[in-house]
Amino acid sequence: MTPPRNVHARAALLMLGSTLGFGLMAIFIRLASKDIPTWEVAFFRNAFGFLSLLPMLALPALRQPRPAAAFAASVRTDQLPRYVIRTAIGIASMFCGFWAIAHLPLAQAISLAYSSPIFVTIAAILMLGERVRARRWTAVALGFVGVLVIVRPWSHAFSLGSLVAVAAAVLSALVAIQIKQLSQTDKADTIVFWTYALWVPMSLLPSLFVWRWPAGIEWLWLAATGLMGTVGQLLWTRALKLGDVSALTPISFMQLPVVTLAGWLLFGESVDGATLLGAGIILGSTFYIAHREAKLAREQRSKAPSEAVEPGS
């Protein structure tokens, strides 16, 4: 049964809101990073994000006769050691991504962040045993070409800082695989709660070595970073529940022109042709990978449980 048209429209609006949320988060990270160390920005993003998230997670429990018990039950897990590993890798990915946003042109940092699905495909092969055939391998190879076009290791434009952005994408891919594994036993709210609950102390510890108390408007930038990150994440999750990932992925690409425009208006940045070309290649590769994965998921749903489906395409 085809979902009604208004459901598709809602999913598109939610994804657009998520995209704007993540784009604004990147802008606020850049503003906050002017004088605040990257580790500290990461800590405040997690702390304010957690404060924004708790009321949303607790609201359903407040409607129950025993709210505290209901909330504890909603976030109970038997996978705490795996969450520690997942959040440690996530913190490393966050730090690399925040550093890239603070020190690279915004368009370059965000373009390289979009290469994460390419590494997710490779990680799924190595960690989940998924099979990938020629067409998706071609998309992965083209994605790497796009990364190389932006990074340009053969030219004077090469910067070691661009490899930090690539490292963030690789680590983000590992996190995505771990979330996929955790989602087999835990609910989405449980995953989100324990991620933030562990992120806050994990990001606080290294930030203490470089601590500098924010002042004035810096508090606004830091609070907005946490709020926009949480809003972006929640809207993204709800959009994917309603719509097809292959249809919604192109909407998420709107983050790139948003941050590129902000980089030009707020920070006097310009975008070179190589970054635009590389970004186009990466976005095309990412879209194709999302399209193939969504098609595979539909085929699995239509044939299950009567017929096993061979994964990969």
Rank of each mutant, 00 (worst) to 15 (best):
Q64D: 05
P65S: 06
P65Q: 04
P65T: 01
R66N: 13
A69Y: 10
A69D: 08
A70C: 05
F71A: 00
F71N: 03
A72M: 15
A72Y: 12
A73G: 14
S74H: 08
V75D: 02
V75W: 03
D78W: 02
L80V: 03
R82P: 03
R82A: 15
Y83E: 01
Y83M: 02
I85S: 09
I85W: 15
I85K: 06
R86Y: 04
R86H: 04
R86C: 11
A88T: 15
A88Q: 10
I89N: 05
A92Q: 07
A92D: 01
A92R: 10
M94R: 12
M94L: 15
M94P: 05
C96N: 07
G97R: 07
F98W: 03
F98L: 12
F98P: 09
W99H: 14
A100K: 03
A100S: 15
A100W: 13
I101W: 09
A102W: 09
H103Q: 14
H103K: 13
P105R: 01
L106D: 07
A107G: 13
A107P: 12
Q108P: 08
Y114N: 12
S115Y: 07
S115V: 02
S116Y: 13
P117T: 11
P117Q: 07
I118G: 06
I118S: 11
I118C: 12
F119L: 10
T121G: 05
I122H: 08
A123T: 01
A124R: 00
I125M: 11
L126G: 08
M127H: 04
M127A: 13
L128W: 03
L128C: 04
G129L: 08
E130C: 13
E130H: 00
V132T: 12
R133T: 05
R135G: 14
R136Y: 00
R136H: 11
W137S: 05
W137V: 08
T138H: 12
T138R: 13
T138N: 09
A139E: 10
V140M: 01
A141G: 06
F144C: 02
F144A: 13
V145Q: 01
V145M: 09
V145G: 12
V145D: 02
G146K: 07
G146S: 12
V147K: 09
L148Y: 07
L148N: 02
V149A: 07
R152Q: 11
P153Q: 04
S155K: 12
S155R: 12
H156G: 14
F158D: 03
F158T: 08
L160Y: 15
S162E: 05
L163F: 10
L163H: 01
A165L: 05
V166Y: 13
A167T: 10
A169E: 02
V170A: 08
L171S: 07
L174V: 12
V175Y: 00
A176E: 10
Q178M: 15
I179S: 09
Q181T: 10
Q181P: 13
L182C: 04
Q184R: 09
Q184P: 02
T185P: 06
K187D: 14
T190I: 04
